[in-house]
Amino acid sequence: MEVKTKLTIISILVSIMFGSLYSVTMQNVFAHESRLYSIGNKDYWITVGSIGEPVFVDDKSGAEAFISTADPANPLDSDSNGTKMMEGLEKTLKFEISAGDKKKVFEIEPAWNDPGHYEAVFYPTVETTYNYRLFGTINNVSVSFDFQCQTSEGEGQQENSTKQISEGVTQKAQRGGFGCIDSRADVGFPEPYVSNNELVHMINKTKGNSTIE
């Protein structure tokens, strides 16, 4: 094998290495909201947040969920060795994304090579509060969980109180929270960023003014 070929192979390996490492480590610094539910007499950890936080308007993002069965020996510890990621839930669960008075249902897809991780990709176009409703069935029990992003970043609730959500579904614990979609106004550089939605409004306004004139 020629040196040139060897270097090419090594370059590809290094690229893959850093690329994968980046994607894995990025997942780890996200802020998400985790809740422990008892669904049909079985405990589940459901963690929901936005893909690729922090997310800015017009970024490619979406809602994502990590679903695992809790460790029966230590259900309150989502990090316990006995937790098992749940696969195949894309068939029974969906995300309904709502913002303002708009709602839309998205199919969820399993993330590649990441069992128990499900995604519903969308492009947030407005800086506002987003609500992710995960609904469908888990363990043959109908579920509907609302997760709302927080305008106060990094201040998630930490509580272990038990509350009945619906028939056969009880929430036992809650951890953390996830931030809302940020405007690019603060980070647009060197020229201020104008979102697509703002552009549309400006154009419509200009059209309106022209018509009046």
Binding site: N28, A31, H32, S68, S78, E155, G176
Partner: peptide, 12 residues
Amino acid sequence: LSNTVFVYGHAI
């Protein structure tokens, strides 16, 4: 990292 079950909390 792949085997880590993410806590997704914060040190707040």
